[in-house]
Amino acid sequence: MDGEPFPHELFPRERTEIVPGAVHVPDWLDPSRQRELLDACRVWARPPAGLRTVRTPGGGTMTARQVCLGLHWYPYGYAPTAVDGDGAPVKPMPDWLARLGREAVAVAYGDTRSLNDTRSLDAGPGAAEYDIALVNFYGGDSRMGMHRDAEERSPAPVVSLSLGDSCLFRFGNTASRGRPYQDVELRSGDLFVFGGPVRRAYHGVPKVLAGTAPPGLGLTGRLNITLRVGGLG
């Protein structure tokens, strides 16, 4: 599912292991798959339990807006309904999106075994059943502070898919929000997976590169779809 490099680039960007357990796969979603995923995001964003502004316990608001599938994330837990929104039941996690999560992990970690078998959570990196999706919409001035995805009980890797504007993605360490960290440019169609020793690493988005979305996609801003395994029973 390789996409096309930017016109000014002579060679495609290559898969990179940022640190052990964290892998960047550029151009993983081709233009057609990006449009399909964007169309789905627009449906998910509609009420009920649609796109909402997330409010923090301290009274602030996140600049990125969010809609959830499978279970509803709120600071700092999960619920079956949009408890900090309109209270409606959360939309289900589509089977095809769960399969996409398993496929992404297999590609990132080089697992060449069949993606169609029924494996337990302990049977390998692509075995987990992805049952939660968080879809974050970033405007040009949106950002995300350094944080950990720590409300899930499963150690399965987090899968991150990018659509629209590029961003500066900051991937840190498991001990603190500060250094060491590495900055990675994520573009539309890119895949980023992190698990294993860095599953609880701090990460964030300090900057969105406004106006960099592929012209043919039809999206102003950035969408990030993160797929997770809750392990919440």
Rank of each mutant, 00 (worst) to 15 (best):
P214M: 05
Y76I: 00
Q34C: 14
V90H: 02
E185P: 01
P92V: 05
P157M: 00
V105T: 07
G87E: 10
G139S: 15
F137T: 08
Y138N: 08
T212E: 03
S114V: 09
E151R: 01
E152A: 02
A123M: 06
L186K: 12
L97M: 12
L115G: 13
P7R: 08
H203D: 04
G218M: 10
L115N: 03
V184G: 06
S32H: 10
V198K: 06
M1R: 09
T81S: 02
A45D: 09
F171L: 15
S176F: 08
A150F: 05
G218R: 00
R13D: 12
L223N: 05
D190A: 08
G21L: 01
R55C: 11
S160E: 06
R55H: 14
P57A: 06
H147F: 02
L161N: 11
V208N: 00
L134Y: 01
A98I: 03
A210K: 13
M1T: 14
G126T: 08
P20K: 01
A127P: 08
A133S: 13
F11G: 05
F169Y: 13
V198L: 10
R102W: 07
G124F: 02
L38N: 05
A201C: 15
V193Y: 06
L97N: 13
Y130R: 01
W73E: 14
E14K: 10
D122W: 08
R200N: 14
R15T: 15
Q34N: 05
T212F: 01
A133T: 07
R143F: 15
P12C: 09
K91Q: 08
R179D: 13
P5E: 11
G196F: 14
G218K: 02
V54S: 09
L161I: 13
V107R: 14
F137V: 10
S120H: 12
E17P: 14
P12Q: 05
P20T: 05
A127Y: 07
P5V: 11
P214L: 00
V159W: 04
E185N: 07
G140I: 03
S166F: 11
W73D: 15
T53V: 15
L71G: 11
H8S: 13
H72I: 08
K207R: 15
A82G: 00
F169M: 02
M144F: 07
L51P: 07
R15Q: 15
D95K: 08
I132H: 14
Q182A: 08
D27C: 13
L217K: 09
D165F: 11
T174I: 14
P92D: 13
P75G: 05
D30M: 03
G77F: 04
V193I: 12
M146V: 00
P206S: 02
G178I: 12
M62A: 09
D141S: 14
P197M: 03
R177I: 12
A22K: 04
T226E: 01
G164P: 15
Y138W: 11
R52H: 15
T220Y: 02
L37F: 09
A108I: 09
R153Q: 12
T174Y: 00
N224H: 10
D2L: 11
S32I: 14
R33F: 04
R102L: 04
A49P: 10
G189D: 07
